[in-house]
Design a protein around this nucleic acid. Structure first.
Lengths: 155, 155
DNA sequence: GAGTTTGTAACTTTGCTTGTTGCATAAGGT
DNA sequence: ACCTTATGCAACAAGCAAAGTTACAAACTC
């Protein structure tokens, strides 16, 4: 089963936007993510609804941040992209009649709930500014890799 | 993104097998899971390789447990079904050149690693016998729902 | 008004999981 | 011996969800 990369991609974009002067067009963002502008609009729409970004049409339009990176946590963005299911494994069926299956689901659900709680709690304590700071550290060590170079990710 | 239900299904089957006299054929198991025998063989093959179950051909053949439920943990079975990825969300790309993306991946990877550690540790402490005991409790409260009734799970 | 850019709907492509079919292999029953 | 019952396995088909694509309307700037 393949990963849902929306959270990762949006974090990536938001931090780039913070370093970008003026509005970033869907086209520009799509190039950064190696995808296409329609997909960008689709995903960014969620962030706009929650008030993290703003979009403007027409000449000079595009996307801008509505607040500082220190005011956005991983949890915020996770929720804004639609709170995709965290776990890739889960119950085979939601309302099993079989009592064995109920017992199995219950055991798994307990374990997953605990892990999810830990994960989201951690998400809540990491701001995008923290990640940007980590980026600055990496940048200081490898100044050559500053830009995006359009290379993105081949995978 | 849809769940991987292999772990759940195999737990379900193993507990049924423990209550079943003699070998259970792939066909019988398939009916319990509302699937078909080939899929059962495919998945059970992993458990056989790890030594949790045994299969025999021919008349009276089928699948049998190779050890008691108290000697199998959730972790064991999770590993036997191929250690499917636990998380449904993840990095958009594995070896990003972009330093921003590296910082993002690093932040996410830390959080996921911690949650996964917690989850697997919990898995290691739950035996199938624990789940079977829970089943017995449910059974005591709802004796009418004892069997499978072939209904399985419509979803 | 001309040129940009987002917004959105509909459709196509892609990748993965599951389901299905077909046949070889092995064991038991008569 | 021969037939029936099973697993083992490979190859193919179907279904589904995410991503990509196309097309066009709406809104904004110059």
């Amino acid at each position: 089963m393949r990963y849902d990369g929306r959270l990762s991609r949006m974090l990536h974009v938001l931090i780039h936007m913070a370093r970008h002067k003026g509005a970033a067009t869907s086209d520009l963002i799509a190039q950064m993510l190696n995808t296409n502008p329609v997909v960008v609009r689709r995903t960014m729409a969620g962030l706009r609804e929650k008030g993290y970004v703003h979009s403007e049409k027409g000449h000079g339009g595009g996307w801008t941040l509505s607040r500082g990176l220190e005011e956005m946590t991983l949890l915020d963005i996770y929720r804004a992209v639609g709170e995709p299911p965290v776990f890739a494994v889960g119950p085979a069926c939601d309302r099993p009649e079989c009592l064995v299956e109920q017992a199995v689901n219950s055991a798994l659900a307990d374990a997953f709930a605990e892990a999810e709680r830990l994960l989201l709690e951690r998400f809540a304590h990491v701001t995008l500014a923290d990640i940007a700071a980590d980026f600055d550290n990496r940048m200081a060590r490898h100044p050559a890799l500053a830009g995006h170079a359009g290379s993105g990710c081949a995978s």
